[in-house]
């Protein structure tokens, strides 16, 4: 694990520094070599550039185009839908689903992150103590993260089933009335959030664990010598030192969670009556969920979601760059 991520770093910086003066000192022949070097460099990049243009930029362009036209099924095939400017966006924002969908996205994301991070951090701290089987158990924790989302979502659906689910059976055993996890508007958002927390814990555990490993152990020893208790050592020493990794973990988790679609769609389809609809599932339902698709509004919702994701994505990149420079 450390081998792949950490060892390559030092030689890079050193290698760059060594080479820089040599190429600057070169004369005409060096300049020629550099120019032909640029040709080779871009020849190797050509496939990925073409790829990005064809399979990222073009689909996104088509998506923006969809959102600016009034498409019907017929004009979707023929491609002659009239241009309507921002009408789809206005329609979507005024829609009765918009407010709830935005609110559910915020709640789903915030609650998921809070629990994933807290549980992940607690487990990461627990696993930093060496004990028998710790590496094996830590590996097993990765399983939920690796399973196909449709597998975990359908398992949770059945576990949370009102009549035959194991969760309600367990609640009955301690005398609690059954809960309509997936079919009650009061509970469906919490149900999909619980499933999403479960899926996200491994990512937080692994990243925070590697962050903890990077803190030199002598700092802990010094704090222990100064008479700090375990709890104090965590809040006064470990937690502040872990802040950069925590920031990265949370921001990346945020960008991932905004995208979550599979879990909600498979467990509740955003229902009942939109009680667990987020921007992602709403966009999908508008575009693909009905017999009569409304691609324009669906694309408009999707583009709003992209803007939100990119705002946080840029914050993430900024934080990461600043840490890289420090």
């Amino acid at each position: 694990m450390k081998h792949a991520t950490q060892t390559p770093a030092p030689p890079t910086a050193a290698g760059r520094r060594e080479r820089a003066p040599a190429s600057r000192a070169g004369g005409g022949r060096r300049a020629f070599a550099r120019r032909s070097g640029q040709w080779a460099a871009w020849a190797f990049l050509a496939p990925v550039v073409v790829y990005l243009l064809a399979f990222y930029v073009y689909p996104l362009y088509r998506n923006v185009d969809l959102s600016l036209r009034n498409y019907t099924v017929r004009s979707f095939v023929q491609g002659d839908a009239p241009f309507t400017g921002l009408a789809n966006y206005a329609k979507v924002v005024r829609d009765a689903t918009f407010g709830p969908a935005l609110w559910h996205t915020v709640v789903f994301t915030a609650v998921s992150l809070a629990f994933q991070f807290t549980i992940g951090l607690a487990l990461a701290v627990f696993f930093t103590r060496n004990f028998r089987l710790s590496a094996t158990l830590r590996a097993l924790f990765l399983v939920p993260w690796l399973l196909p989302l449709i597998v975990s979502s359908s398992t949770w659906s059945w576990m949370l089933n009102s009549e035959s689910g194991v969760v309600n059976a367990a609640l009955a055993a301690v005398g609690i009335d059954p809960v309509n996890w997936l079919t009650s508007p009061d509970w469906s958002l919490w149900s999909v959030t619980i499933a999403n927390i479960w899926i996200g814990i491994p990512f937080n555990l692994v990243v925070l664990y590697s962050g903890l490993q990077a803190i030199p152990s002598h700092i802990h020893e010094a704090a222990a010598l100064d008479g700090a208790t375990g709890w104090q050592r965590f809040w006064r020493v470990t937690f502040p030192l872990l802040r950069p990794v925590s920031a990265i973990t949370l921001l990346l988790g945020l960008v991932y969670t905004l995208k979550v679609f599979d879990i909600i769609w498979i467990m509740t389809k955003g229902g009942p009556s939109d009680a667990s609809t987020t921007l992602a599932t709403w966009s999908y339902r508008l575009g693909f969920g009905n017999l009569l698709p409304s691609f324009g509004p669906g694309a408009a919702v999707g583009n709003l979601l992209i803007v939100i994701a990119l705002v946080f994505g840029l914050v993430y990149i900024r934080v990461q760059r600043r840490q890289g420079a420090a």
Binding site: P59, Y61, N63, L66, V255, K259, A280
Partner: peptide, 20 residues
């Protein structure tokens, strides 16, 4: 650009791909 590309939700890419 590659970092940004990772952040685009799949649902939205799907709609663009569908049209194409």
């Amino acid at each position: 650009v590659l970092l940004i590309a990772q952040m685009i939700p799949g649902v939205i890419m799907a709609m663009g791909f569908y049209a194409i």
